[in-house]
Amino acid sequence: MKKVRAVIAQTKPWVISVISMCIILLAWIVISVLGIASMRTVPPIQSVIYSLYSISTEGYKGSTLLGHIGASFFRLFTAFFLAILTAVPLGLLSGQIRKVRSALEPVIEFIRPLPPLAYYTVLVLWMGIGNGSKIMLLYIACFTPIYVACVSAVSKIPASYIDTARTLGAGRRQIFKRVILPYTAPDIFTGIRTSMGHGYSTLVAAEMVAAASGMGWMVLDASNWLRSDVVFAGIIVMGITGILIDKILRELEKRLVPWKGKL
């Protein structure tokens, strides 16, 4: 018993993560080899790997895996960048000017707790079933976390930070550029990351409701045809791309706002 404890204490955290992943994979293999569950409910690992290969090369219903990822990413990133471009200035402005905040806050507070799919129906009614309504939906989903992060970041700036700049001769514009913007940047970044997570899950859900391409659609369509191998492959791809996007954002954060947590 003592020995086991000593071994666990010495094991590095990442090794433990790898072990837990291996246990899940092992369980999957055991289940499919022993035939505990049917091929439809739990497809064997090799058929998932094969369908990953075949949807990458031959494609699934008209376009390859990369094509589906591309369709999804086009919607997601168009909306994401539009949200950053508008939510950051509006949020920073609302944080500083009470009247702007009073104008925007009721709308945003109303939309924020709504599940995006609830207003997606309205957007489809207005903008049709194409990319327009999806981008609009994702834009709204991405907008709120960034906006809220900006407003709260501005309200957190200690008065002495701004007073110091003023006593050193800074005007409004310089205070904005040299104090408010860098001070709020770490929180804005956190908002951007939250927004990406929110946008990503909304994307998949929206594609499942109404689309003819994209990762969400591919998974839903495959499940309609009981192609659980494709469903599993699609989910794995979504998971990995989600992790990758977050990793990239974290890396950017580390490089762009190294003073995060030092304020």
Binding site: P158, S160, Y161, D163, T164, T167, R178, V179, P182, Y183, A185, V257, W259, K262, L263
Partner: peptide, 11 residues
């Protein structure tokens, strides 16, 4: 002005 807690800019 020099404040009690230094308001240096960490960036």
């Amino acid at each position: 002005v020099v404040f009690q807690t230094p308001t240096l800019y960490p960036w």
